[in-house]
Amino acid sequence: MAALTFTLKATPPERLDLSALVLERLTGLDADAIKALVVGTSRDGLTVGDLFDVSGDDPADIRLSGDERLDNIGRGLKGGRITVEGDAGIYLGRAMKAGLIAVSGSVRGPYAGTAMTGGTIRIAGDAADAVGGAVPGAMHGQAGGLITVAGHVGAYAGDRMRRGVLVVEGYVGDAAGARMVGGTILARTLGTRAGAGMKRGTLIAKTVADLEPTFVPTGTYAMPFLTILRKWVESEVPGAGALVPSNPMRYRGDMAALGKGEVIVG
């Protein structure tokens, strides 16, 4: 079987909702049925066939040519692999449970990996706001799985994160891990208000801008957990293991919330 490949014929005239292009919804559909799927978001009712050249027949291996107007790529994904050549829009991998989404460009829209519970998202470029965070009104953000970003990400990364790991090899914007209740965010640097209101969870970075005064230093930290994390990160994201410091300072907080979270800097 060959990879099921969707190649854009031209820049989409409107934002597209690609939540139908996942393994569990494409299984059993023939080429004509796939081409008839509606992906447009206006009343024009644009279909896959209107916008993409479709080839291949393996829904477990989906390849997409990217564009920042492609929203909901891999939304609710339960298995298989989606490869995006280029950029992606909002809600990439939202609520995905398993499988892999790899983006060779950048994620231009917010809320990638929100509410995901498993699987892996790999972004070769940058990502916008609220990666692994919570959509407005949601009780939790990322709740499992792994998100890796080779570039930089925007604000509110891991907002209300509950479980899972977010690795950012570049810079993270403000309010990373705000209101976090679990999980791990590993980055090169964190912006201001990192961990504001966090109850539990772990933020790790080389530097943090203006750590909130509600974080209490607990001394240097050289426990086995860091080695375990470094090994695991290196196995998942080769080269990123070096982001885990070996003899850092540890701060607990946010003492204005539950105070069982931590920011590890060094």
Partner: peptide, 20 residues
């Protein structure tokens, strides 16, 4: 105690008098 789930494995970090 702090739970850390990395891939399929879950670890517990239990505070004790020499650290964790």
């Amino acid at each position: 105690q702090i739970s850390k789930k990395l891939g399929p494995k879950r670890y517990w970090r239990v505070p004790v008098m020499d650290g964790e």
